[in-house]
Structures are given as structure tokens and as C-alpha cells.
Lab assay of single mutants.
Amino acid sequence: ELREAFRLYDKEGNGYISTDVMREILAELDETLSSEDLDAMIDEIDADGSGTVDFEEFMGVMT
């Protein structure tokens, strides 16, 4: 189920989504998050600083 959700956002099928897209997902899930909260969450999610979120990083957030 998580893989299907990931595929919805990984429109190009390249195995990752951008941190911008991940930020939008988080904002949709919790509309009360401030910009600073979102920045901090993205920094934590994208631990390797690649600017992308792969499936493993995505799973870590969603579980």
C-alpha cells in the first residue's frame, strides 16, 4: 500500500520524489504545520541531503 502511494508521487518512475513534493504531502497531511516545521521535517527525512526522498525514506515517514 505504501509503495502504491509512493508511485503516485513518483510520476516519472525514477525511484524518488523531490523534497518539494514531500513537503506538499506533509502539508496536506497536517495543515497546521508551519513552514519552519516543514523545513525541519524535510531535513530529517532527507538525511543524506540529496534533495530527494527515496522509498525507504518515504516509508520511514509514513510508518
Rank of each mutant, 00 (worst) to 15 (best):
residue 60 G to T: 15
residue 38 L to S: 01
residue 18 S to Y: 06
residue 39 D to I: 06
residue 57 E to V: 15
residue 54 D to K: 10
residue 49 G to N: 11
residue 42 I to L: 11
residue 33 L to G: 02
residue 8 L to Q: 15
residue 8 L to Y: 14
residue 21 V to A: 14
residue 34 S to G: 06
residue 3 R to E: 15
residue 59 M to R: 10
residue 32 T to A: 08
residue 15 G to P: 02
residue 37 D to L: 09
residue 20 D to L: 13
residue 17 I to A: 00
residue 62 M to D: 03
residue 50 S to I: 08
residue 51 G to M: 04
residue 9 Y to S: 04
residue 24 E to M: 14
residue 62 M to S: 02
residue 48 D to A: 07
residue 46 D to A: 05
residue 56 E to V: 12
residue 13 G to L: 06
residue 42 I to S: 02
residue 13 G to S: 06
residue 45 I to M: 13
residue 43 D to S: 14
residue 59 M to E: 08
residue 25 I to S: 00
residue 15 G to T: 01
residue 22 M to H: 01
residue 1 E to P: 10
residue 58 F to N: 00
residue 34 S to K: 07
residue 63 T to I: 13
residue 46 D to Y: 03
residue 14 N to S: 09
residue 5 A to L: 15
residue 48 D to F: 07
residue 20 D to K: 13
residue 13 G to A: 05
residue 55 F to V: 05
residue 3 R to S: 08
residue 45 I to A: 11
residue 1 E to Y: 13
residue 42 I to D: 00
residue 5 A to S: 09
residue 45 I to L: 11
residue 3 R to W: 15
residue 13 G to I: 03
residue 30 D to W: 13
residue 46 D to C: 04
residue 26 L to N: 00
residue 57 E to Y: 09
residue 1 E to K: 13
residue 11 K to S: 10
residue 44 E to L: 14
residue 34 S to H: 05
residue 32 T to C: 09
residue 39 D to Q: 10
residue 49 G to E: 05
residue 37 D to C: 13
residue 40 A to I: 08
residue 13 G to Y: 03
residue 33 L to V: 04
residue 61 V to E: 03
residue 59 M to T: 07
residue 29 L to Q: 07
residue 23 R to P: 00
residue 19 T to R: 07
residue 28 E to F: 11
residue 17 I to L: 06
residue 53 V to H: 01
residue 50 S to N: 08
residue 56 E to A: 10
residue 41 M to I: 10
residue 5 A to I: 15
residue 22 M to N: 00
residue 15 G to F: 04
residue 61 V to T: 06
residue 19 T to V: 13
residue 40 A to S: 10
residue 38 L to P: 01
residue 7 R to D: 15
residue 30 D to R: 08
residue 4 E to P: 03
residue 36 E to H: 09
residue 28 E to L: 15
residue 55 F to T: 02
residue 27 A to Y: 10
residue 40 A to H: 12
residue 31 E to S: 14
residue 38 L to N: 00
residue 44 E to F: 14
residue 52 T to N: 08
residue 7 R to T: 13
residue 15 G to E: 03
residue 31 E to H: 15
residue 2 L to M: 09
residue 9 Y to H: 13
residue 34 S to A: 07
residue 21 V to S: 13
residue 14 N to E: 04
residue 39 D to A: 07
residue 36 E to V: 09
residue 5 A to W: 15
residue 49 G to L: 07
residue 3 R to I: 13
residue 39 D to T: 07
residue 39 D to E: 07
residue 36 E to L: 09
residue 33 L to K: 05
residue 26 L to K: 00
residue 59 M to Y: 12
residue 34 S to E: 05
residue 14 N to W: 08
residue 54 D to C: 09
residue 54 D to L: 10
residue 18 S to F: 03
residue 3 R to F: 13
residue 44 E to Q: 13
residue 27 A to Q: 12
residue 56 E to G: 08
residue 53 V to I: 13
residue 56 E to R: 09
residue 8 L to T: 12
residue 54 D to G: 15
residue 41 M to D: 01
residue 61 V to A: 10
residue 34 S to N: 10
residue 57 E to A: 15
residue 2 L to E: 04
residue 48 D to T: 11
residue 22 M to T: 02
residue 35 S to R: 11
residue 10 D to Q: 01
residue 28 E to I: 14
residue 33 L to M: 07
residue 41 M to H: 03
residue 48 D to V: 07
residue 25 I to L: 11
residue 44 E to H: 12
residue 46 D to K: 05
residue 55 F to D: 00
residue 28 E to V: 11
residue 26 L to D: 00
residue 49 G to M: 07
residue 52 T to A: 06
residue 31 E to Q: 14
residue 26 L to S: 00
residue 27 A to C: 08
residue 11 K to H: 09
residue 34 S to Y: 03
residue 32 T to H: 10
residue 39 D to N: 09
residue 25 I to E: 00
residue 29 L to F: 11
residue 4 E to R: 04
residue 23 R to M: 03
residue 1 E to I: 11
residue 4 E to Q: 05
residue 25 I to A: 05
residue 47 A to T: 12
residue 44 E to S: 14
residue 18 S to C: 06
residue 31 E to R: 15
residue 58 F to W: 09
residue 7 R to F: 13
residue 62 M to R: 01
residue 5 A to G: 07
residue 11 K to V: 13
residue 42 I to E: 00
residue 48 D to I: 07
residue 36 E to D: 11
residue 40 A to L: 10
residue 41 M to T: 03
residue 4 E to G: 03
residue 59 M to K: 09
residue 2 L to V: 06
residue 7 R to S: 14
residue 18 S to W: 04
residue 9 Y to A: 09
residue 63 T to E: 11
residue 6 F to L: 03
residue 28 E to P: 01
residue 42 I to W: 02
residue 60 G to A: 15
residue 60 G to Q: 15
residue 33 L to Y: 07
residue 40 A to E: 07
residue 43 D to Y: 13
residue 15 G to Y: 03
residue 42 I to N: 01
residue 13 G to K: 07
residue 31 E to L: 13
residue 44 E to I: 12
residue 20 D to W: 09
residue 42 I to Y: 01
residue 17 I to M: 02
residue 44 E to G: 11
residue 24 E to C: 15
residue 51 G to L: 04
residue 48 D to G: 08
residue 19 T to K: 07
residue 38 L to Q: 01
residue 53 V to C: 03
residue 50 S to V: 08
residue 37 D to T: 10
residue 38 L to D: 00
residue 61 V to I: 13
residue 41 M to G: 01
residue 30 D to Q: 07
residue 12 E to P: 03
residue 10 D to M: 05
residue 48 D to P: 03
residue 7 R to Y: 11
residue 4 E to I: 04
residue 18 S to P: 08
residue 19 T to I: 14
residue 24 E to P: 01
residue 46 D to R: 04
residue 1 E to C: 15
residue 42 I to G: 00
residue 52 T to I: 10
residue 11 K to F: 09
residue 31 E to A: 14
residue 54 D to M: 12
residue 55 F to A: 04
residue 17 I to F: 03
residue 35 S to P: 12
residue 2 L to F: 10
residue 29 L to A: 07
residue 20 D to V: 13
